[in-house]
C-alpha cells in the first residue's frame, strides 16, 4: 500500500515520458520500414532490427544513463558536494586510461576484461582523490571539483601520452567519444545492473553518509567501509559505461542535482525517479543526435554536452534566483562560474 501511495504526479510524468521515449527510440533509425504497423504484422526484418540493434541500443542508453546518475548521486553524497560527479573526480578519465591500457597490452579483448581494467584504474584514482581531498580539508565547495577536473585532465594526459607512444591515437579518439552506435560491446553495459542493485540495497547508508562522518558514526555505521563501497560502485559504473558507450559528460552531474531539488537528499526515496530521469535525459539526447543529420548520427557526447550545458546553466541560475528570493545563499556566483567551465 505504501508503494501505491508513494506514486506521485512527478513520478508518473517521468515514467510516462520514459515509455514514450523508449518507443520512439525503438522506431527511429536508418531502416524506415520498421514501424508499429510492420511489427504488428510480424514482419521478420523489422523484428530482427529491433532485437539485434534497436533494443540493445535503447537498453544501453537506459542502463548507462541510470548508472551514471546513480554514480553521481553517490559521489555527491560521499563528498558532500553538489558539484561532484564521476567525471569531476577523475573516475571516468581513469577508466579510460585502464581501458586503453587493456587495448594496448592485451589487444582486442572481451568487454568484460576491459571493464575490469577500467574498474581497477577508476577505483584507485577515486580512492587517491578522496583520501587526498579529505586530508586537505577544503572549505570552499567549488575547489574540490576544480581540483578533480585538473586531476582528470592529468590522467587523460597520461592516457594520451601512452597512446601516442604506442601509436594508438586514432583508437583513443574513437573510444573517447561517447556513442551508442558501437553495438558490438554493448553487452558490457549489463554489468551496470550489479552496482546499481548494490546501490539500491545500500541507499539508506549512502543517505546517512551524506550527513557527515560523526553523524554516521553515531548511527553505528562504519563510515570508511560505506565510503569504500560507494567508490567501488562508482568505479564499476564508470568503467562499464566507458567500455560500452564511452564517456557521457554531465549526466552524473546534472541528473542528481535536479533530482535532489525535487525529491531531497534521501537517496532511498529518490533513487528510482533519479534513474528514470537520467534515462529520459539521455534518451532525448540520443534521439536528437540520431535525427540531426539523419540517416547518419552524431556522437551522443556532443548532444549531451550542448543540451546538458544549457540545462545546467539554467538550473544554476534558477537556484541562484530562488536562493536570493529566499534570502539564502545556496549557490554562489563563483560556483556558477565553475560549473560553466565544465
Amino acid at each position: 500500500m505504501d508503494y501505491i501511495k508513494s506514486i506521485n504526479f512527478k513520478r508518473l510524468i517521468i515514467i510516462s515520458l520514459f515509455v514514450i521515449l523508449v518507443i520512439a527510440s525503438m522506431l527511429i533509425g536508418a531502416l524506415e520500414s520498421v514501424t508499429v504497423k510492420s511489427l504488428f504484422q510480424g514482419d521478420q526484418t523489422s523484428w530482427m532490427v529491433i532485437w539485434s540493434s534497436r533494443l540493445p541500443r535503447t537498453l544501453a542508453v537506459i542502463l548507462s544513463a541510470a548508472g551514471l546518475s546513480v554514480a553521481g548521486l553517490i559521489m555527491q553524497a560521499i563528498s558532500r558536494n553538489k558539484f561532484m560527479s564521476p567525471s569531476t573526480a577523475g573516475a571516468s578519465d581513469a577508466a579510460g586510461l585502464g581501458i586503453m591500457i587493456a587495448y594496448i597490452a592485451l589487444n582486442t579483448q572481451e568487454g568484460i576484461i576491459k571493464t575490469i581494467f577500467g574498474f581497477f584504474f577508476a577505483l584507485i584514482a577515486t580512492l587517491l582523490f578522496t583520501s587526498v581531498i579529505n586530508r586537505m580539508k577544503i572549505r570552499e565547495v567549488v575547489y574540490v571539483p576544480l581540483i578533480g577536473m585538473m586531476y582528470g585532465g592529468l590522467i587523460s594526459a597520461i592516457t594520451t601520452l601512452i597512446c601516442y607512444h604506442f601509436d594508438a591515437m586514432q583508437l583513443f579518439a574513437a573510444i573517447n567519444q561517447g556513442s551508442f552506435a558501437r553495438i558490438g560491446s554493448f553487452a558490457t553495459v549489463y554489468i551496470i545492473i550489479v552496482p546499481v542493485v548494490l546501490a539500491m540495497f545500500y541507499a539508506a547508508r549512502f543517505s546517512i553518509i551524506g550527513l557527515g562522518e560523526d553523524f554516521s558514526k553515531n548511527l553505528g555505521l562504519n563510515y570508511n567501509r560505506v565510503v569504500f563501497l560507494g567508490l567501488v560502485i562508482i568505479a564499476l559504473i564508470s568503467a562499464a559505461s566507458y567500455t560500452a558507450v564511452g564517456p557521457l559528460p554531465f549526466v552524473g552531474l546534472i541528473i542528481p542535482n535536479m533530482t535532489t531539488t525535487f525529491y531531497g537528499d534521501n537517496i532511498k526515496k529518490s533513487m528510482l525517479d533519479l534513474m528514470f530521469f537520467g534515462a529520459d535525459f539521455v534518451l532525448i539526447c540520443d534521439i536528437i543526435s540520431r535525427l540531426v543529420i539523419f540517416p547518419f548520427e552524431m556522437s551522443v557526447s556532443l548532444t549531451i554536452s550542448v543540451i546538458g550545458g544549457i540545462v545546467f546553466m539554467g538550473y544554476v541560475i534558477a537556484t541562484m534566483r530562488k536562493g536570493k528570493y529566499r534570502g539564502k545563499k545556496s549557490v554562489t556566483p563563483s560556483t556558477a562560474k565553475a560549473s560553466g567551465e565544465e
Binding site: 558532500r80 541507499a203 539508506a204 547508508r205 543517505s207 546517512i208 551524506g210 550527513l211 557527515g212 560523526d214 553523524f215 553515531n218 548511527l219 553505528g220 555505521l221 535532489t260 531539488t261 531531497g264 537528499d265 534521501n266 532511498k268 526515496k269
Partner: peptide
C-alpha cells in the same frame, strides 16, 4: 547517541526522513 554541532549539515531531507534515520541502528534501513 551523540549530536555534534548540526548547523553545518546542509542536506535536503525532510524532518520525518531525518527522524527515520535515527532508527537505522535498530532496523538497518
Amino acid at each position: 547517541a551523540v549530536l555534534k554541532q548540526t548547523q553545518s549539515i546542509a542536506v535536503r531531507v525532510t524532518v520525518s526522513e531525518l527522524v527515520e534515520f535515527g532508527r537505522f541502528p535498530h532496523c538497518g534501513g
